[in-house]
Amino acid sequence: MSAAPLLEVRAIAKRFRGLQAVDDVSFAVPAGGIVALIGPNGAGKTTTFNLIAGAIAPDSGSVLLDGIDITGRRPDQACRAGIGRTFQLVKPFGGLTVLQNVMVGAFTATADRAAARQAAAEILDRLGLADKAESAARSLTLPERKRLEAARALATRPKILLLDEVMAGLRPTEIDRMVRVFSDLARDTGIAILLTEHVMRAVMALSHHIVVLHHGQKICEGTPEQVARDPQVLECYLGHGQASGPAPA
């Protein structure tokens, strides 16, 4: 991590009714970097996402985007500051068309409908949803909905994209396709990506850097190779049979 960080998370903590969901976690995402946040269920990954995206406010610690403190901002403010997020349980605007869904996101960057439409169409094209543009969002399959989530978030022109388990429930071929989509995206646009994922195949193929959480604490971070060899990680996480080990992209 040589470049100045785009996103910097400094010692954030959040406690829910006696349960320390996130405990003093710090990490950084450089501009253009792809960082994965992994850990077993209940490790605090989604809570960390929610803390960064403003869905919940941290008890302590801070979140900096491009050097600006965005700690405790509302979700809409965090979005306008440059954080685009997807939801683990997808939330499509079911009554709108796919194109309109993405246009809602695009309107954050422009008030002009033609421009929003143009931007949305380009993003749908990139995510392979162009042929579904006029379908109702509620008619999409789960993999399509996952891509719609990402497309909508992308349309807000974020500096960093937060992907919350967008591979879960997908078949291996679809996973490979998503991995390609996102690595192309990062390469072509220079956008930074922070993802949580259970699918190790995707994590290993996509990320430059991995942060491992366990019981709300960061237990290790490093390159995929380093993390995969870390005894602590193997103990708490990979040992549980969830992983398929490092896999070539």
Binding site: R74, P92, Q100, V104, F107, T108, A155, T156
Partner: peptide, 26 residues
């Protein structure tokens, strides 16, 4: 309905949390 405000209203109608995450001051 054909302007930003109309899209925003419909987004809020369909899912407030998602609308918020897309930068809408709900």
């Amino acid at each position: 309905l054909n302007r930003r405000v109309g899209y925003y209203w419909q987004a809020i109608r369909e899912d407030e949390e998602a609308a918020r995450a897309l930068g809408i001051d709900v």
